[in-house]
Computed example of a mutant assay.
Amino acid sequence: MAFGVVLRSFRKKAGLSQEQLALEAGVERNFVSLIERGINQPTIRIIFKLAAALQVDPSAMMKAVEQHLAQESLPTKPS
């Protein structure tokens, strides 16, 4: 799920629709949707294709995934 959240964030920051990203990356639009919803997980090859289409380093995407996961694991303060 974390990769999907990060992918959506990078995609929106780039101003691309799912369809535009899919076209640039050479994947199906519904596959981008499935990744963003956490239903499918991309292979390393697909991560590199998506990163190239977004004009970011794959390592930057993975760093963002790490940060997202770290944020999720922080304990919440009781209200």
Rank of each mutant, 00 (worst) to 15 (best):
M1P: 11
M1F: 07
A2F: 02
F3A: 13
F3M: 14
G4V: 05
G4Q: 07
G4T: 07
V5M: 15
V5I: 15
V5H: 13
V5Q: 12
V6N: 01
V6K: 08
V6M: 06
L7D: 01
L7F: 00
L7Q: 06
L7K: 00
S9M: 08
S9F: 00
F10G: 01
F10M: 07
R11V: 03
R11H: 05
A14T: 05
A14D: 06
A14F: 03
G15P: 00
G15Q: 00
G15R: 01
L16G: 00
L16V: 04
Q18S: 02
E19N: 08
E19H: 02
E19F: 04
E19Y: 02
E19P: 00
L21T: 01
A22P: 02
A22F: 02
E24A: 15
E24V: 06
E24T: 10
A25K: 02
A25L: 02
A25M: 06
G26S: 03
G26W: 05
G26E: 04
G26C: 09
G26A: 11
G26K: 11
V27C: 05
E28D: 05
R29Q: 08
N30V: 14
N30T: 14
V32A: 04
V32K: 00
S33W: 09
S33Q: 10
S33Y: 07
S33E: 01
L34F: 05
L34H: 09
I35K: 03
I35T: 03
I35Y: 05
R37N: 12
R37S: 09
R37E: 00
G38H: 07
I39C: 00
I39P: 01
N40P: 02
N40Q: 09
N40S: 12
N40K: 15
Q41C: 13
Q41M: 08
P42H: 06
P42R: 05
P42A: 03
T43V: 10
I44S: 13
I44L: 15
I44H: 12
R45A: 15
R45Y: 14
R45W: 11
I46A: 14
I46Y: 12
I46F: 09
I46M: 11
I47N: 07
F48S: 14
K49W: 08
K49G: 06
K49L: 12
L50F: 02
A51N: 06
A52V: 04
A52E: 13
A53W: 01
V56C: 09
V56H: 13
D57Y: 09
D57L: 10
P58N: 06
P58W: 08
P58A: 09
S59Q: 11
S59T: 09
A60K: 11
M61P: 07
M61S: 04
M61D: 04
M62A: 12
K63D: 09
A64L: 08
A64E: 13
A64D: 04
V65K: 07
V65E: 01
Q67K: 09
Q67D: 15
Q67A: 10
Q67F: 02
H68S: 10
H68K: 02
L69Q: 14
L69H: 10
Q71T: 10
Q71A: 15
E72K: 06
S73Y: 11
L74D: 14
L74N: 12
P75V: 09
P75L: 12
P75R: 12
P75C: 13
T76E: 15
T76V: 13
K77D: 14
K77M: 15
P78E: 15
S79E: 15
S79G: 14
S79A: 14
S79W: 14
S79V: 14
S79Y: 14
S79M: 14
